[in-house]
Amino acid sequence: MSGSKKSPLKVAKPSSAESWTNPFDSDDEGKDSKKYSSSRKTSSERALATLEVNTNPFDDDIDANKKSSSTSYAFQSANRNRYKNDFRDSGGLENQSVQELESYAVYKAEETTNSVNNCLKIAENIREDATKTLVTLEQQGEQITRSHHVAADIDHDLSRGEKLLGSLGGLFSKTWKPKKTRAITGPVIVGDDPVRRKDNHLEQRDKLGLTSAPKGQSKLRTPPPEPTNALEKVEVEKKKQDDALSDLSDLLGELKDMAVDMGSEIERHNKALNHLYDDVDELNFRVKGANQRGRRLLGK
């Protein structure tokens, strides 16, 4: 995969703004300015083409002369540009030599490999972000449960407070009973809580012979032999594409599972928050009642 070649820098066509000349300029000035702008452009292009920034700390001992398999088929940028517009400038596909078409096939194969690799890279990034999101969701779930436990503790303390408020008051005062509309339930585990099931599903699949381990072992890829002609080169690229697409397929399957797990966890959170809301609402009602009783006692 690492051997795949990046497409070269496109030589930018002069924009309409550049080719436009001021009607009030003298001819000489126009020529001079054109000459200046074009020379400036080519020097910057040269700089871009030669500039190779080495940011990888592991690069120092890779032999500069040692090229990867794909670089042995280096093309001139002019040829590449012809490939980009499918030989429209040079009489179409049917007017090309066999050699030219072979080179074109290799170029297209490399381009496809690059595209597939980019897709894989994007999927990897998504997977990484999704993993972080799932960890955050797990943390959020724990926080909801803890908050609910605290609400249950408040209920316990409030009950003691209500007892004390009930026993206060004069000898002839009416006994006060706190109003309760419903009992405080505390955190409720919704359903069978599949997220926290303890039996290892993977182990069971393994015993059934459904594990993906053998598939994984077959993925230990041996590098193909150095290609000698265009056909072999295309085959190598196809092999790379197959490997990348296989990885991409696995990744997308995993992303789907992650999305499902995210959905079910958020649903669980919603239900837990509904229960929490009901309990907090009940606590609020009872605190108001206790405050009212306290004010009455102080008013006497």
């Binding site: 799932l134 960890v135 969701l137 797990e138 599949p194 997220v195 926290r196 099931r197 303890k198 966890e265």
Partner: peptide, 10 residues
């Protein structure tokens, strides 16, 4: 993490 559906991906 293996025994938790949310954390197993990490």
């Amino acid at each position: 993490s293996l025994s938790n559906n949310l954390l197993k991906y990490g």
